[in-house]
Design a protein around this nucleic acid. Structure first.
Length: 945
RNA sequence: AGCGCGAUAGCUCAAUGAAAGAGCACGCCCCUGAUAAGGGCGAGACGCUGGUUCGAUUCCGGCUCGCGCAACCA
């Protein structure tokens, strides 16, 4: 036999052939798909094809238009994209209109940083608008690069004039429904923002502050004696307070005691001779040791309530302030007597209301004491701290000064400490018109995933204060209302006027600000004009995005409220989920969503949040440009997003490995579908071989599982299942076995066409399972699949629906039993291999010894058992005849003994099986009988494998 | 204070009131007709601790650790 003949026979094989490359080169190839999709208008084609199908509406929470996208953005958009594409394949009309949050302070800051301050507000706003637009462009490119498909050329931007107009209408409705009021309240004030902040914009961080104890002298000892009764001891009488914000002392209007706590009158000497102080009984020792008083004596105890109303001397102003009572007083720190400045704290404010204290506001928007504030006018509050401490020393009122590390509210953008400052602000009332109650009712109507998210938002809505919706900033949507100069009441025609103003806002502008600036009070209010003034505040940006349910639905025909799903990171419980809920309930009395799904954050392998300072940032752009967007998408899908999602080099590498495995499985299927025309060569399920029918059944079962996992948004299960299918069912079993048939049987034989029919079906199914996740690769597979000669095929996988799974008669074969036998044989083959008896399994012959059902099941396959086991011979014998060296199958099938031997027969030059009949055909000396028949005869017949 | 979520092999994920599965990674072997592929074999895990139960990784309690929310803001 010459080499030449060998080669000739190789040409008679049907080896795989495909242009679908093994190497994905995703970074190189993905942009090409993006171009194609865009050029072909894929998104629009999907819309057209989905017309009339039941809708699935995902509302896109708008990312803030500033900075490059990070992993959190990527996770969020990819999850959204997976869901939208799933519903598309599932036969729904699922439009995706992305949005951006465009107003607000961070943009103002960036613009000021780059271009300095502007005198002209209109010009400044134009600069902000230009800047935001640039950010949108940049983020849009990055989002698209991840394969996120949507109406990217027609996004909703909160700065679109039309959006702003709808926002005004939303405000009008909320005002009409009676939820809005103007209040003078202490709010979190960011000195860098020069604006009030919403709860959601505050975060607590550790800060070092001066902590001081301050004497408040009792004004009238006689009055004290009368209240306390049986006064004892000698010396000056005072009530010391403790604070970490000395600068708030100019605003002090009272000292609060707890009505029910015990207070002690303590006689002591802290370096100024004998004196007496009132201190919470439980704190006496701590306070005394803090003051350095070793020798002190408790003269008596009284409940705080007995001192109610007693006057104290302000430590450095000519002001007498009362002792008041409040339940907020605790014994955690301090002296049990709480410095109360109604303008500088929430509880202080409440206490001030209850006790009719003056509400003064000595600090300006810039953080400096207002002119006219004695001793500290013009000083910045933090400089004020030091000055106040000096003043206290001068007045001998300072008992103790020490630095303290404590957690303190900070601006979440600037990371700088906030102050509490009383200012006039606009609020949405949580309770005035039952907003809180209705919102809580609505929360219970929504499907929250995971379900504990419901508790979480309930707790937040239950406990939150009124929503401060005003900001003292330029880059936002004006609160375009008139208030009465004296009464602060809204003009009675406010709602009507808002509608007039909204009507003046054009598609391309003017925007709300310009309209409001140009609005003429005389024209709008007539005779009332003189008594009313224009409000110059803008709206909290959370209000902007929060009313997306209204604004975007008004602008885009395809959107409506409520949406089926809001999907955001879990931080949005206090952000967008809540602002959307509140605006929607305030407007319409119902939630803007039927379902809410949350995901965790991306963290590094040590579970740490990604942060610039730690330097553990993984950039989505970098992954897309190195491993490919599909690998990034696969990582998102593979992670259990309910908790934190760990990213690391190792994890990404693993992800890329499993990507390759799935890709190669697809490649093998495609390669062996070469020359297969589904419209010509399809074999009816009833005519297919048993093993191929098994493959169809397995595919159908898996599809059911995959779809169920998609429906319940458990993408990590999908990834596991598909990957497992590729590795175990396909690579490790089915594909390995059918190679013989595919390669060696005549191209158009039933045996080969049956396998191809199954493979075609598997590929058609799998490409769809993968499409929502591996969008690029699925499209690549889709284009490589053989097109039926007789019919059109959708031009993109995303224009198709799930593959129909034919009912197949599984027959009597128990495949799990056969697989068990195969595994047992493999273990024996491995032992033979290790002994050096065999290499390839085709070098072996197998003798199986068993009885009963097992024997029958194996016997049914006849000679085809050897193809299942991929050995050259597989012979069956009664168990009784087993030789001494036959090995009992240790696990799996009962009553099976296996004997593996090295084949003595010649190897067929074509199929590589070692057979007795090699050379029996004179025309084909190097071939076995069936190969000779396959090459030159009618071809073999197969029924099983 | 607290509340919630989580803890399964090196990694990513399963399942289960009764011998805990998979893939990747790892070790060894084979193949060279899926070849920057493929096949086989192997080793490897229920955070700790009580209780309920005939039996607990699974149900309940406590602890530890991680994460989130909340709190601390005088």
């Amino acid at each position: 036999m010459s080499d030449k003949t060998k080669k000739d026979y190789k040409q008679t094989l049907n080896l795989p052939q495909t242009a679908f490359p093994m190497r994905a080169n995703l970074p190189g190839r993905e942009p090409g798909w993006l171009e194609t999709w865009e050029r072909e208008g894929l998104y629009q084609k999907i819309r057209a094809a989905s017309q009339g199908r039941p809708k699935f509406l995902l509302a896109d929470g708008p990312p803030y238009a500033n900075g490059k996208i990070h992993m959190g953005h990527a996770v969020n958009k990819v999850l959204k994209d997976i869901i939208v594409k799933f519903h598309t394949l599932d036969g729904r009309d699922a439009p995706y209109i992305p949005g951006w949050d465009c107003h607000g302070l961070p943009i103002e800051h960036q613009v000021e940083k780059k271009k300095g301050r502007f005198e002209d507000k209109l010009k400044f706003r134009q600069a902000c608008r230009d800047y935001a637009m640039k950010q949108v462009e940049q983020q849009r490119v990055d989002f698209k690069r991840l394969g996120v498909l949507g109406d990217w050329e027609r996004p909703y931007l909160t700065m679109l004039p039309r959006y702003e107009a709808e926002q005004l209408r939303a405000l009008a409705t909320i005002i009409a429904n009676g939820h809005v009021y103007k209040g003078y309240k202490p709010v979190h004030w960011c000195l860098d923002c020069r604006s009030a902040l919403a709860e959601a914009e505050v975060e607590y961080q550790d800060k070092r502050s001066p902590s001081i104890d301050v004497r408040f002298a009792v004004v009238d000892e006689a009055a004290f004696a009368a209240a306390w009764g049986e006064p004892a001891g000698e010396g000056a009488l005072s009530v010391p307070i403790w604070t970490t914000t000395p600068w708030t002392l100019p605003g002090n209007q009272a000292v609060a005691l707890h009505p029910d706590l015990e207070y002690s009158l303590v006689s002591c000497d802290v370096g100024n001779g004998a004196e007496r102080m009132v201190i919470a009984a439980d704190l006496v020792d701590r306070v005394m040791s803090r003051f350095g008083a070793s020798d002190y004596r408790v003269l008596g105890n009284r409940a705080g309530s007995v001192l109610n109303g007693l006057l104290l001397q302000h430590p450095f102003y000519d002001r007498q302030v009362p002792l008041i009572l409040g339940d907020h007083v605790t014994l955690d720190a301090g002296t049990g007597a709480v410095h109360t400045a109604p303008g500088h704290g929430q509880e202080d404010f409440a206490a001030g209301l209850a006790n009719d204290l003056p509400l003064d506001n000595p600090v300006g928007a810039n953080g400096c004491f207002l002119p006219g504030i004695e001793l500290v006018a013009g000083l910045h509050v933090y400089k004020g701290n030091d000055r106040i401490i000096e003043i206290l020393e001068e007045h001998k009122a300072l008992l103790k000064l020490e630095p303290i590390e404590h957690s303190y509210p900070h601006c979440w953008r600037h990371k700088t400490p906030l102050i509490f400052r009383a200012t006039p602000q606009w609020f949405v009332s949580m309770d005035e018109k039952g907003l809180r109650r209705t919102a809580l009712d609505e929360i219970r109507q929504v499907a929250w995933t995971p379900d504990w998210a419901q508790q979480r938002i309930e707790a937040m809505v239950e406990g939150r204060p009124d929503w401060c919706i005003s900001r003292q900033r330029a880059w936002g949507v004006p609160i375009a209302v008139f208030v009465h100069r004296e009464t602060n009441e809204l003009h009675p025609r406010t709602v009507e006027i808002l509608e007039i103003l909204a009507g003046r806002i054009g598609e391309e502008g003017p925007d709300t600000f310009a309209v409001w600036q140009a609005a003429d009070a005389q024209e709008l209010l007539g005779d009332d004009a003189e008594d009313y003034e224009k409000v110059t505040d803008t709206m909290d940006v959370w209000f902007d995005s929060g009313c997306m349910h209204h604004a975007a639905s008004a602008i885009f025909d395809e959107l409506e409220s409520p949406a089926d799903l809001y999907l955001e990171g879990s931080d949005q419980h206090r952000g967008w989920f809540q602002s959307s809920l509140l605006t929607s309930v305030a407007m319409n009395g119902h939630a803007p969503y039927r379902g809410v799904l949350t995901h965790g954050f991306a963290v590094d392998e040590k579970g740490r949040k990604m942060s610039k300072s730690v330097g553990n940032i993984v950039e989505p752009q970098k992954i897309a440009n190195s491993l490919g967007a599909d690998v990034l998408r696969l990582w998102v899908a593979a992670a259990d997003y309910h908790g934190e999602m760990t990213v690391s080099d190792e994890i990404l590498k693993r992800t890329a490995d499993s990507y390759r495995r799935m890709r190669n499985t697809a490649r093998f299927l495609l390669g062996n579908l070469h020359g297969y025309d589904p419209s010509e060569n399809k074999v009816a399920p009833g005519d297919m071989l048993a093993l191929d029918r098994w493959a169809l059944a397995r595919t159908a079962a898996l599809q059911a599982e995959v779809l169920e996992a998609y429906r319940s948004y458990q993408f990590h299960l999908i990834y596991q299942k598909i990957h497992n299918f590729c590795v175990v069912d396909m690579g490790g079993f089915y594909l390995d076995i059918i190679k013989d048939r595919l390669y060696t049987m005549p191209a158009d034989s039933v045996g080969r066409r049956s396998a191809q029919t199954a493979m075609y079906h598997i590929a058609e199914s799998m490409v769809r399972w993968l499409a929502p996740i591996l969008s690029f690769t699925a499209e690549e597979i889709w284009q490589a699949l053989p097109a039926p000669a007789d019919g059109a095929r959708e031009e993109s996988v995303l224009l198709s629906l799930w593959q129909d799974q034919p009912e197949v008669d599984p027959g009597d074969t128990d495949w799990s039993e056969l697989i068990g036998v195969r595994d047992a044989v493999n273990r024996e083959l491995e032992r033979a291999r290790e002994k050096g008896d065999i290499g390839s399994s085709l070098a072996a012959e197998v003798d199986l010894y068993c009885d009963g059902n097992l024997q029958e099941a194996l016997a049914a396959l006849g000679d085809e058992l050897r193809f299942l086991l991929i050995t050259s011979y597989a012979r069956l014998h009664p168990a009784a005849g087993k030789p001494g060296d036959a090995v009992a199958a240790d696990e799996g099938p009962e009553g099976l003994w296996i004997s593996v031997s090295q084949s003595e027969h010649a190897k067929c030059g074509r199929c590589w099986h070692r057979r007795e009949d090699v050379g029996s055909n004179a025309d084909h000396e190097s071939l076995c009988g069936r190969c000779a028949d396959n090459v030159d005869g009618a071809g073999e017949a197969r029924r099983w494998a």
